[in-house]
């Protein structure tokens, strides 16, 4: 069975890092082997494309580029005017099915996805992310495409009930640098690196 190798395979160490010895206020783990498919189109046909996808996947489409639509482990981001990212397991997606007027590109190996959770996760991300993550400005479901320490990221605020939970999508070739930046910044708070999953 062919297995995917994480960009972080050589440096990922599960365990507690940084300050303090009480329960950590942060946890980080890599989300492995997720699908990431881009569906894009053109202004005139994009709405009908979205309707077709909606029916095919039985999944609502996002209205704008501010809030993603999630259900279970799957999420759809509208990353451009006529561009969607389908993240998570999408076993039923046939590249040909969105129709002739849509372009489907598999970019599932191009991003490393890290989950940051805990009371200090906003503070940690704002060490590099110039986006207001306050609950009022960036409520659950919100996502933003921005830059952290020169690296392009997509940051998604998940509905973590009582806990702040964020997924960070970072280009695979920057993953090691990003991991080094993130874990070093997290040391100030004390952080649990959890098993990838």
């Amino acid at each position: 069975m062919l297995e995917r190798r994480s960009a972080l395979a050589a440096i990922y160490r599960v365990g507690r890092i940084g300050a303090g010895d009480g329960p950590p206020s942060l946890s980080v783990h890599e989300r492995l082997a997720r699908d990431l498919v881009q569906v894009s189109g053109w202004p005139q046909s994009f709405p009908s494309q979205c309707r077709r996808l909606e029916t095919m996947l039985d999944f609502p489409m996002p209205d704008d580029g501010l809030k993603a639509v999630s259900h279970g482990e799957s999420t759809i981001f509208r990353v451009g005017p006529e561009r969607l990212w389908l993240a998570g397991p999408w076993p039923g997606l046939d590249p040909a099915s969105p129709g002739d007027e849509a372009v489907v590109t598999d970019i599932g190996h191009s991003r490393t996805v890290l989950r940051v959770a805990g009371p200090q996760s906003r503070v940690l991300l704002n060490r590099g992310l110039p986006i207001d993550l306050d609950e009022a400005a960036f409520p659950a479901g919100s996502f933003a495409q921005s830059v952290i320490h020169h690296m392009a990221v997509l940051v998604h605020h998940l509905d973590g009930q009582d806990e702040a939970v964020f997924d960070v999508y970072v280009p695979r070739d920057f993953a090691v640098s990003f991991w080094q930046w993130l874990t070093e910044a997290a040391e100030a708070f004390g952080c649990q690196i959890e098993e990838p999953g």
Partner: peptide
């Protein structure tokens, strides 16, 4: 800020880097 040493600029690594 943190932009010193290995963080001076991020590095892009090939999937075969290791």
């Amino acid at each position: 800020g943190a932009g010193t040493g290995q963080h001076f600029m991020p590095v892009r690594r090939s999937p075969i880097h290791d």
